[in-house]
Amino acid sequence: MATEAHSPEGATGYIIHHLTPLATGEGFWTLHLDTLFFSVVLGAVFLVLFMKAAEKATSGVPGPLQNFAEMLVEFVDTQVKDSFHGRSALIAPLALSIFVWVWLMNFMDLIPVDLLPSIGKAVGLGYLRVVPSTDLNATFAMSISVFALIIFYSIKVKGPIGFAKEMLLTPFGPWMIPFNLLLKLVEEIAKPISLGLRLFGNMYAGELIFILIALLPWYIQPALSLPWAIFHILIITLQAFIFMVLTIVYLSLAHEDH
């Protein structure tokens, strides 16, 4: 990434500028400060809101905040109960945090593309990419964590031997062990990759279109950005939902003993 290079002028420069993260460090140890900052802030927003709701949660008439929190909790709980049949103290809260966090990160997409970068420029930040879910690091962080949980639960529920058996002996029996293993590895690794790339791709493309619209003359922009933004409300919710549901499904698959 040409983080230190002077951005070229014109449309290309504008786009590149918008898609370049505020980074520090070299090589692998580069940190995308904007991604980290916004995701932490949004996570904090989620936690503060929901902890406040949980603190004052009563079984009586709920306030608006509790009502909202309960609505989401029940929604997530229904999703979990629909596809996951075991008992787990982790999966439902995990699904809730994924849904709300991803939604909030996606929501940054709907903030006017130039607003936060301009403010950043005013306080001396050369680059600012405000949507954390347009950063592969953010989406893969979640999908790899979920993948780790899948492996962990697979081994925990089926036992090391059961897990190894599943990896080696399905779907074609003991005479095809290498082939089985290859197939299984692809199947398992496809899970986090597709999970992370799907969210990233959708958000990245959405943000790119917002940037392209922002390049048009101002009198055309509203006609395009309004429908796209309205459509995007659906997209961000849908992507958060898909990420959550797939997480639940993968984890319930990991819990199933064959």
Partner: peptide, 19 residues
């Protein structure tokens, strides 16, 4: 890059607190 690790830690903490 290392952002991935930071994000994973953030995510883990988030899930933990939610739980």
């Amino acid at each position: 890059n290392a952002t991935l690790l930071g994000q994973m830690i953030t995510f883990a903490l988030l899930v933990l607190f939610t739980m």
